[in-house]
């Protein structure tokens, strides 16, 4: 095939398919597919929350009994507690991860150091969650390493009980595994920020803090949002840390749904999930309303065009 024929073929193909993804059918198709694979199951779940189980079989008589029991049994508390811990931990992860990502992207100049750190950050993804969490019991327990050292050195006479089987232990256990999910997206976005912006800011007399808050932070927003989502969403379903380090005192949504499922209480599990989705929707609505004066939420992603 000659070059001329090849070129004309490429031109023809381009002309034919150039408008493929700008045609009107893309968005409707996406919506239809999304409705089928996400919205319909969600609606079925909502419907299930109005049924109840008797003798391990679903009774398809709609009522509010399951919702009543959700309130009466205190299961709703586990959903609220989960949301509280998730928001606190997402905020803590961000506060720790952002400076670290900034340092890694802009301050750390050694490629070898960067490569080593990024490799180290991937370790939690490869280690079984139960295995990496159970280790903390031997460290934080009443007869664990920390209490042993504190008592042997005379710092404490009695072991510190709240190190294990407490909310502190659960927060502590969550910190490391979810750190990479916050760091990576922020690191990638900060890496893409052109150094000339930072130099221009400095040349124009901005302080380091001004550069941070007026240049780096706004340009990092897509990474922050992505990091927040990647951290927050899996945290909603976390069960290893509360199960192993909470000692049964930090009853979160995951274990609560699991307990309901183990008893074949599908309607209860459905009601709990619907309750959490409702809480998340309310939370997002409040967030959007609160940040509306800063501009549209879509503005966040304008920076990605630069």
């Amino acid at each position: 095939m000659s070059d001329k024929v090849q070129k004309s073929l490429i031109v023809g193909l381009r002309a034919r398919y150039s408008n493929l993804f700008s045609r009107d059918w893309v968005i409707p198709t996406f919506i239809v597919v999304w409705v089928i694979i996400v919205i319909v199951p969600l609606l079925i779940m909502v419907a299930h929350s109005f049924f109840e189980m008797k003798q391990y079989r679903v009774v398809y008589d709609a009522s509010f009994k399951t919702w009543d029991s959700l309130i009466d049994s205190g299961r709703w508390i586990s959903a609220v507690r989960t949301l509280r811990i998730v928001l606190v931990m997402t905020a803590i992860e961000f506060l720790v991860a952002f400076p670290f990502a900034l340092w890694l992207a802009k301050v750390c100049k050694s490629k070898v150091t960067k490569a080593v750190i990024i490799t180290l950050l991937t370790i939690p993804f490869f280690v079984d969650p139960s295995s990496r969490t159970i280790i903390w019991r031997a460290i934080l327990g009443r007869n664990g390493i920390i209490n042993f050292v504190l008592m042997e050195t005379g710092v404490n006479n009695e072991p510190i009980e709240w190190l294990l089987f407490s909310e502190f232990a659960v927060h502590f256990g969550i910190l490391a595994p979810y750190f990479p999910t916050m760091v990576f997206p922020i690191f990638l976005v900060i890496t893409l920020i052109d150094d000339e912006y930072l130099e221009a800011s400095r040349d124009l007399g901005a302080s380091k803090l001004q550069t941070l808050f007026r240049i780096i932070l706004p340009l990092s927003l897509p990474g922050i949002v992505a990091g927040g989502v990647f951290t927050m969403v899996p945290l909603m379903a976390t069960w290893v840390e509360p199960e192993m380090l909470g000692g049964g005192f930090v009853n979160l949504l995951g274990p609560s749904v699991d307990a309901a499922m183990r008893e074949l209480k599908y309607p209860t599990a459905a009601a709990l999930s619907v309750f959490v989705i409702a809480l998340l929707v309310i939370f997002l609505a409040v967030l959007i309303l609160a940040t509306r004066r800063l501009g549209s939420i879509g503005d966040i992603f304008h920076t990605m065009k630069r």
Binding site: K54, S69, G74, R75, E263
Partner: peptide
Amino acid sequence: APNAAVMEEEWQRFLNA
């Protein structure tokens, strides 16, 4: 037990206390 479901529900109150 016939009352297993209600026993489990009430026990949740202890777990969530």
